[in-house]
Design a protein around this nucleic acid. Structure first.
Lengths: 227, 227
DNA sequence: GGCGATAGAATTGCTAACAATATTTTTAGC
DNA sequence: GCTAAAAATATTGTTAGCAATTCTATCGCC
């Protein structure tokens, strides 16, 4: 496909993915092609291609034939699988990052922490969400494995959507303190501690989620039979 | 997108991915839209969409604007990253598979081994390649994490392409003996041994690859200056 | 008044024709 | 005979319009 279209589709994908990640587009929100064309100032074909990609690659959009697209509502099983997969990748990224520490990489990590800190101090909620996600991307880039970085990028987006869907309190996703401690352990080269902190970090995020029961797909008969 | 188109695109993607995995389409092979339309009996739009997907999602196709698509030729860095990522995921899948062992799952693993064995005895080269890849998919399904399964599926396809590009001797990708030993360890619930065998299995595959120098991007001047 | 059917509107899905770009072949000039 | 420009061909990229489907609102009937 033409380089122009490619770039345009990527733009739309990122706009939508960001909006979903930052909880501006809630799970279940309808994504009408015509509306997106209007809002994004884009070609309908490009919008369609972007929606396809968000559905088949990132899984943050659901497309029902002849009925259009909407922001996905992952099942609890899927949510758990995503977190498990992400945990596995994050864990190995920590290990690689420690093995791959250079002066430049140390700097990148510290700079990222500063960015997050700045966002918090300024009270910019959406910037906070974005930067706390970026932290994990930076870590992946420090690790130096582009494939893992890409896989993680997808899982982070999915994670954000899951948080929007299942969080019990409207809190932010990652705490800066945990990121700080993690960087300390990485810079100190303490692999065991760093991996422990990452595991805990992932567990903390999940702890604030309601992944025990299943709200969707309720059995109406059972739910109403005793009313 | 319509369910019909979706299915059709998937069909084309799978046909092409299989052909690449099984080394019927060599790295660098041109994929002309018109030819594919003719050979696959498909609509050009569907072919285009499939090529897009193979390029952006699976990374086994390279699309040059206004020049069309061809089978990708991953760099050595990319090849190494893919193997590293796959190793990490395979390792964790082994662990999950052991934790998730049921009678049904035991059966699936044994059945898969039989299939591979049958293919070898029958001497069907392409079936051998396919089934030895399927082994890893079955293992992932036994592990029960669909997200990991999907991530692995992509990495297996990419691995196959890398093997086609960098193998020094035209051998098959996985040895049935190693699969056999791996299943034994898993069925015995021996996590340490199973993970060790999986690590070794991945290392064995890489050992037959030429990932030390870099053939692509040759410096013509240097190469020919003394001739 | 509630339920179901039918017509209209909105939305998505598909296709085919046209435009832009790259590659190959031909032709003219040296 | 070789080089380089120019036409011809082949291939990809883009768009607009039509077709199919679903949703919504109105109307008739029980």
């Amino acid at each position: 496909m033409g380089t122009r279209a490619q770039v345009e589709i990527k733009r739309i994908v990122e706009r939508l993915a960001d909006a979903i990640s930052e909880h501006r587009l809630p799970p279940g929100a309808r994504l009408t092609e015509a509306k997106l064309v209007e809002v994004l100032g884009a070609n309908r074909n490009h919008v369609r291609a972007a929606l396809q990609k968000l559905a088949s690659e990132y899984k943050v959009v659901t497309i029902v034939p002849n009925r259009g697209a909407c922001v996905a509502q992952p099942t609890i099983k899927e949510a758990k699988d995503v977190f498990a997969a992400r945990g596995i990748i994050e864990r190995s990224i920590v290990e690689l990052a420690i093995a791959n520490l250079t002066a430049k990489n140390r700097n990148r990590l510290l700079k990222q922490l500063e960015k997050e800190d700045g966002a918090i101090k300024r009270g910019e909620r959406q910037e906070m969400i974005r930067e706390s996600g970026n932290f994990h991307r930076v870590l992946a880039q420090v690790a130096g494995n582009e494939v893992l970085d890409e896989l993680l990028a997808g899982l982070i987006t999915r994670t954000s959507l899951i948080i929007a869907l299942y969080q019990e309190t409207p809190n932010v996703q990652c705490s800066i303190e945990e990121h700080q401690a993690l960087v300390d352990a990485i810079l100190a080269g303490d692999r065991g501690q760093a991996q422990y902190l990452m595991d805990e970090h992932m567990a903390t995020i999940q702890r604030y989620l309601l992944l025990d029961e299943r709200p969707g797909e309720v059995d109406l008969q059972a739910a109403l039979s005793e009313s």
